[in-house]
């Protein structure tokens, strides 16, 4: 299990990296933390002829607040940094809660925020969480940059809007409105495994304690982050009673997701788990929203 040969570039600026990508196009692959890419290279399941390593680009690693009270994360910020960052804990509690659930400490020390998003594994927590949080991503190419909302960025299995000569350089996560609560629930065989199913829920109550918005995004439940639109619709304007929550969970599990079968779980079991987790996540999120005045 040794990787095939490749041409290697380790630029120190984004511009330099972009010029390598522009030159090599589809032959090149961006190396971020490498915690998903290198295993696939070791298995020789992927054999990029060119690797553009972003690890020496210092300007891509940061966490800071933005003007509107949200959070900005540089693409090369390591999971471990996000996990222990006090600003993340304060401004993005869902993200803070999510980080320790990603793989193991040895993976989190190398894996990066932008790498995980760009890889677009439908089982990855950050993919669904960034959609649940209404995040936006800044993509840069040699011809300029563009902002893409998270819910448009992921377009399929391991597929995003990124062009081969573009890099996701930054993620912006808006602040949570008042009377909001969140939850991340997963079922995994072992805690550090990819979840059989997971769900990130963000809910907001209005002044009358009715559901103003309830966003649930499932992981491992389809070809990408699966947004539970119908379930959200069913909750809108409702009091978050157990009955309403149960009904929404049922809708989410039966109509909003499209899970597949594999050796770990059948689609049927995944729908069942999605139902259970949606209920639990909504309960927790609404409880937290009620406390979060």
């Amino acid at each position: 299990m040794k990787p095939a040969p490749f041409e290697y570039y380790a630029p120190t600026t984004i511009d330099e990296a972009l010029s390598h990508l522009a030159e090599h196009g589809y032959d090149a692959k961006v190396l971020a933390g490498g915690q998903s890419l290198i295993p696939m290279m070791n298995f020789r399941l992927v054999q990029p002829s060119v690797l553009v390593d972003l690890n020496n680009i210092a300007e891509l690693s940061y966490i800071h607040p933005d003007e509107s009270g949200g959070l900005r994360l540089g693409a090369m910020t390591r999971h471990h940094q996000v996990e222990v960052d006090p600003l993340v804990a304060e401004l993005a509690p869902l993200l803070h809660e999510t980080m320790p659930k990603i793989a193991t400490s040895q993976i989190r020390s190398r894996g990066t925020f932008g790498g995980s998003l760009s890889h677009a594994d439908p089982s990855a927590e950050l993919v669904s969480v960034s959609v649940a949080l209404d995040g936006r991503f800044r993509l840069r190419g040699q011809n300029g940059e563009r902002w893409v909302p998270a819910n448009e960025f992921f377009i399929g299995l391991f597929t995003t809007l990124l062009e081969p000569d573009e890099i996701l350089v930054e993620a912006a996560l808006p602040s949570m409105p008042v009377r909001s609560g969140c939850s991340l629930m997963e079922v995994a065989r072992r805690p550090h495994d990819f979840a059989l199913v997971g769900v990130a829920a963000v809910v907001t109550l209005d002044e009358n304690k009715l559901c103003q918005q309830a966003r649930m995004v499932f992981l491992s439940a389809g070809d990408g982050p699966m947004v539970a639109h119908k379930a959200a619709e069913s909750l809108k304007g409702q009091a978050p009673t157990l009955e309403a929550i149960r009904a929404a969970a049922e809708i989410a599990a039966s109509e909003d997701i499209d899970p597949g079968s594999d050796i770990h779980a059948t689609a049927e079991f995944r729908r069942h788990l999605a139902n259970v987790l949606a209920r639990r996540a909504l309960e927790q999120a609404f409880e937290r929203a009620a406390d979060n005045k």
Partner: peptide, 27 residues
């Protein structure tokens, strides 16, 4: 395992535990 699961190859990379099978030496 050379795919980042077993942890036998864990080393400290600038003080942080990392899988040495998931890092290129050049890095």
């Amino acid at each position: 395992c050379e795919h980042g699961v077993c942890g036998a190859c864990t080393i400290l990379f600038d003080g942080q535990p990392a899988r040495s099978c998931l890092v290129f030496a050049v890095q």
